[in-house]
């Protein structure tokens, strides 16, 4: 009887030690929920959500410190995905947070004085150029976050809306005229 208890106690102790060791050894460094939320956010890094970038916002959501409807670039689709992921109700975009049309920053290359301030501001390194040289923006990489507008001392950066072209055109949601005549006469 006593030996049985001792054996069980020994096994319990051994397993406890293994579990404790595993906990330390295989520690999950990052919160996987933050990664999942971050994956949904559009990565524009614009800070319109009130956080200094998408990941900080993701972290705040994961800590239940921020609502899911604060990101304008993510739009309704983004909120829906967040609601699905977190198992909460969908809610429309927060007050005064209308999504802007997708745009891209353009530098007026005649005015640029090469101060590099915009390079430092751009969160995705979309601006190329070096000190005292004209800068340009790589349109393919620019997320349209507008963070480079404010630092420019000569106001030579402006945003241009990206217009639809044959390549990016989407089929419209089918809408049909409402017929005034009663059904059956057509």
């Amino acid at each position: 009887m006593l030996s049985a208890i001792l054996v069980m106690a020994a096994i319990g102790l051994a397993l406890g030690v293994i579990l404790g060791w595993a906990e330390v050894r295989f520690k999950v460094a990052d919160n996987p929920l933050v990664d999942k939320i971050d994956k949904i956010l559009p990565q524009t890094q614009c800070g319109q959500c009130g956080f200094p970038g998408c990941r900080p916002y993701a972290e705040a959501i994961a800590r239940h410190e921020a609502d899911i409807n604060l990101c304008p670039p993510g739009g309704e689709h983004g909120i829906r995905q967040l609601a699905d992921l977190l198992g909460v109700e969908f809610k429309p975009l927060g007050e005064g947070r209308a999504p802007k049309p997708k745009s891209v920053a353009i530098i007026d290359e005649n005015l640029c004085i090469g101060c590099t301030l915009c390079i430092q501001a751009c969160p995705v390194d979309a601006i190329v150029g070096s000190s005292k040289q004209m800068h340009t923006i790589v349109a393919d990489v620019c997320t349209g976050c507008e963070l480079c507008l404010a630092p420019c001392p000569v106001d030579c950066i402006h945003m241009e809306v990206i217009h639809e072209n044959v390549g990016s055109w989407k089929w419209r949601y089918p809408v049909f005229p409402i017929h005034s005549e009663p059904a059956g006469t057509a």
Binding site: D38, L41, Q45, C54, P123, V124, V141, T143
Partner: peptide
């Protein structure tokens, strides 16, 4: 595009 932006932001 978001994936690309994330990578570039991480790099930045």
């Amino acid at each position: 595009a978001a994936e690309l932006a994330r990578e570039r932001h991480d790099f930045h």
